[in-house]
Write a protein that binds this DNA or RNA. Structure first.
Lengths: 233, 233
DNA sequence: GCCTAGGTCCCGTAT
DNA sequence: ATACGGGGCCTAGGC
């Protein structure tokens, strides 16, 4: 197995060589005092602090502080170059669409780790997709006697998760949510139902989710729509 | 300044001591071969691969692979414990709300860095908030002669970004989007406009954003609502 | 505490 | 290429 390369207090000229040599080859991790500027869809400045800077093989740049899941700055799929200045080492990460730039001004000699990270197989269960599949394959959980008509069906107002037909030949629009159904979910459902009603089609609407917020439930009832509690484990 | 502590191929018993000693004190970064399991709102498995594992001072756990901005697994604000097994070193990160667990099975002796990360001041411009302020302070960009009535005004259907009054005494509901306005934005606006109409108030609706998707624009026009292209730099 | 809405959201998928 | 919608979204603000 390839060993990590660990370097302490790396000189900026050496760091520049490392980045030239290992960018888009290995992952480069740095611990450094730095100031960060971002300019693009918005613009930001993060004042000097000690941070963790990660340059991944695919050009992803991540800058983390000591707290929080989210990086303070980032850049997906960037072209990263560097410059040695008098008072700082400058890292420039550019992406073109959208046109954005992140600049990291490193103020000290960073500790650097060069390593090869892999990618394992990743599998997940419990997504909205799983819930849609479940309803599509078991329409009776929504209503006894209902049959599948369509799933993930595109309308001008968005994509309907599942469409069923009841035993008395009415359409049932099902909006699935993997987590807590909220106002937005109900609004989505209302749009779909209105769309079919305007086409002169007799339809009912149902939310299927493990839980729902009180406000969402109220709005649902006000619009004579249904709720089916549905947990897939 | 505190120096980073860099340790190569750390024995599991030593690693356990490190985690006990430095958890919620410093940031601990590991490079290791590992398998990751998650169980909670959904459940996932990431097969064995070489990954970057970060334990932040606030109990944040991040597990990164060699590509992508997003971690393959994570846990915010977790309580992290460890166990030394025969064939692996086990990291367990638990959070209570929602009740979720991430388990990392480390298969080799990891390289470990213990470091103290800081937090700088962070400032950002170009958010939706900024756009709302701009419209509130310059109502004429929406319509000549319009005056500010309210901003971020709560209704039962959500929070209206800006409300103006035109020179001929009609209300103008403005929905601001910092990026591309989409179907959802138009739906939001429709809800607000309908709400005021039902109250018997004469009202128009406008989306203000730097750009809008074709579908959203079509829906906007179908509902006789307006669009104002607005970029704040 | 729960709920609501924004985000430099990212990211996959379909058009 | 753009558009559209999900996400274990995360995170901040309100009630």
């Amino acid at each position: 197995m390839l060993e990590d390369v660990v370097l302490s207090r790396v000189d900026w000229l050496v760091l520049q060589d490392i980045i030239r040599k290992y960018f888009r080859v290995s992952t480069i991790v740095m611990f450094c005092q730095c100031e960060v500027f971002y300019e693009g869809r918005a613009s930001s400045r993060a004042s000097e602090a000690r941070r963790l800077v990660i340059i991944k093989e695919d050009g992803t740049l991540l800058i983390h502080e000591g707290v929080g899941v989210e990086p303070v700055n980032w850049q997906p799929n960037a072209l990263i170059t560097s410059k040695v200045g008098e008072n700082h080492f400058e890292l420039v990460a550019v992406r073109s669409r959208p046109k954005e730039v992140v600049k990291v001004f490193i103020k000290d000699k960073p500790d650097v780790i060069i390593c090869k990270l892999g990618s394992g197989k990743f599998s997940i269960r419990g997504t909205e997709e799983d819930l849609i599949n479940y309803v599509a394959q078991n329409p009776s959980v929504i209503e006894e006697g209902a049959k599948l008509v369509a799933r993930e069906f595109a309308t001008p107002h968005g994509r309907v998760d599942v469409i069923l037909r009841s035993s008395n030949d009415e359409l049932i629009i099902v909006e699935c949510k993997r987590g807590v159904a909220d106002l937005d979910a109900v609004h989505q459902l209302i749009r779909y139902v209105e769309y079919y009603r305007e086409l002169g089609i007799k339809v009912r609407g149902v939310i299927a989710s493990p839980s729902i917020t009180p406000q969402a439930l109220k709005l649902l009832q006000k619009n004579s729509l249904g709720y089916v509690k549905l947990q897939i484990t």
